[in-house]
Design a binder for these strands. Structure first.
Lengths: 315, 315
DNA sequence: GCCAAAAATAACAACGTTGTTATTCTAATA
DNA sequence: TATTAGAATAACAACGTTGTTATTTTTGGC
């Protein structure tokens, strides 16, 4: 059915191995022959068969991204930046929204060259049985795994945000975030906020957003503002919580200086200037790709935790 | 490196063709032999090589979904339901967020069995050069293509929503949706809304949501409500736009009767009752999969437009 | 215990590539 | 005009499967 190297060879009156070489610009074939073959291939709409290639070369030039929960704006941005970075390295990225183990098993059967997982804790852990057969890199929160995991240094991020507020003259600050949760990320943010405030000897309050969604944050902030006013400086636990606060920012006495976690382009399209602290998503993407490609090429086992350094981003 | 049929054969003292048959439960192999081989395969962590299989059988049991704009809750739900439906048919689904032509070309090279495209108009059209080589089904708005496209009868849906509002006594209605867009779906919704209002001779207003996201809709509604009030009956262009409106529904004089486009389960977990009109997403998913699988199995070219009939869903 | 038929297993070609080795062609040298 | 080095191309094995054909083993009837 589909056009193969042999079909092109027959049409051009050469052997199929010559066609193979010509199409990948081997110096072993004359320019004239190459041109003729390439033209014919184009004209016949030749589509290389990756299965055959993969079988003999053990390379598919394809990377699988495991992303079971397709949601949350910040992650969407990251996925698309990983796609770009991989493309630049010559890989095609493909996403599975299946559960992580099923997805990884299929990627293995398809003989993809590597896997990136959006780690969300225990239930996204890949077993050794799988990870010893294909290079894997995770994006998530620091934890013990037998493949490398890339994360953001939350402690440092919080310190930077507080120092920035102090520097701008705010000596009373608020933290607005999700308190009643098991999510280790949220707990770390709150705890380090408190720790750094104490260390710097400034007054602080902790305001419960009642959840991670924009909606709950909005509701929580509304009822808070009924009885209090915000201190000048505020740190929000995430993009969505920031959005919830934003609904009410015009009801506050003075416009507060807001720092938000996460570092994504979306903040640029909001009227109210939101400063943020975190690692730019294109930077995270590049790091993930670098580590994965390195693992593929050197074929070295690597089980490190890679902390990325956050930056302050003023708007 | 990886374990192959031959490795298992050597361990079991049988030929590799017997192993192949045993692992796929062929009746040509004794139960006892099968058991022994399967155990050994498990123990050796055998991972079938899809490239080799695909090469000889011309089947990869993999379907590619082309989804360049990963966003919007309604579409996410649909994607995950397509994933389920395909799984039930024995296929593994994989998503590409590349531009449609690049993605389709890669799917072709990977010898996937079929492609589903989320059609968004001209720029998502796949050329014949590609579509004559792999079964394709699109989800979008009715238009001329050389592969089948499945869509919702928007015209009928809008008519149903407006008639329902009239029936409940609303003779002044509002449409809240994205106006400044090239997305043909959004344009059709707005246009048919206007047409049916005129036909039914009721007063209407068109309110711009300023985008498709919850945030932009929320912002737009807020500024609208500063100077106007909503008519009693409202039709929203999508799930996310509805969510944006919901943030402010308590600020309106009377609780409006809201109809939302899209028909997804998420509406059931919202406090405010939102009625919706549309085709349930699991139904759309099933139809897409049915048409695609049929195309794959019969290998028949098919260039029809399949209209799905929307339903009113009261809550 | 022999023979034929049936059951179980083995052998092998094929799928479309790549990379290595073998062959043919070209042109320069003696 | 032979000879031969070097360039160009052809031939072929291999990758890990599947499905078909060939071979061996088992079984049952006499």
């Amino acid at each position: 059915m589909a056009v193969t190297l042999k079909d092109i060879a027959r049409e051009c009156g050469v052997s199929y191995s010559t066609v193979s070489k010509a199409l990948k610009d081997s110096p072993l074939v004359t320019e004239a022959t190459k041109r003729k073959i390439k033209e014919k291939a184009e004209q016949m709409n030749y589509i290389p068969n990756n299965s055959a290639r993969s079988l003999v070369s053990n390379r598919s030039n394809t990377i699988g991204l495991i992303w079971p929960a397709v949601d949350r704006v910040a992650i969407t941005t990251l996925a698309s930046q990983i796609n770009q970075a991989l493309k630049k390295e010559g890989y095609f990225m493909v996403v599975s929204i299946e559960d992580p183990i099923t997805a990884a098993q299929k990627f293995l059967e398809l003989r993809f060259d590597g896997v990136i997982v959006f780690d969300e804790g225990e239930h996204t852990t890949l077993p050794t049985k799988i990870t010893k057969n294909i290079p894997v890199v995770a994006y998530g929160v620091e934890r013990e795994l037998d493949y490398p995991i890339i994360n953001v240094n939350h402690d440092l991020a919080m310190k930077q945000a507080i120092d920035a507020l102090i520097h701008k003259g705010y000596h009373q600050v608020d933290y607005f975030g999700d308190l009643h949760t098991n999510d280790i990320r949220q707990i770390v943010k709150k705890d380090t906020f408190i720790r750094h405030c104490k260390q710097r000897r400034i007054t602080y309050r902790i305001i419960d957003s009642g959840g991670l969604s924009e909606e709950s944050a909005s509701r929580a902030m509304k009822s808070f503002l009924a009885n209090h006013d915000l201190n000048g400086g505020v740190v929000c636990g995430s993009y969505d919580i920031t959005m919830g606060l934003l609904h009410h920012v015009k009801d506050t006495k003075q416009t507060p200086m807001i720092f938000s976690y996460d570092h994504i382009d979306q903040f640029n399209s909001i009227d109210t200037p939101i400063h943020s602290v975190g690692v730019p998503s294109h930077f995270i993407a590049q790091k993930l790709v670098d580590v994965l490609v390195d693992t593929i090429e050197t074929n070295k086992v690597n089980r490190s935790v890679i902390q990325l350094k956050p930056q302050i981003n003023y708007r």
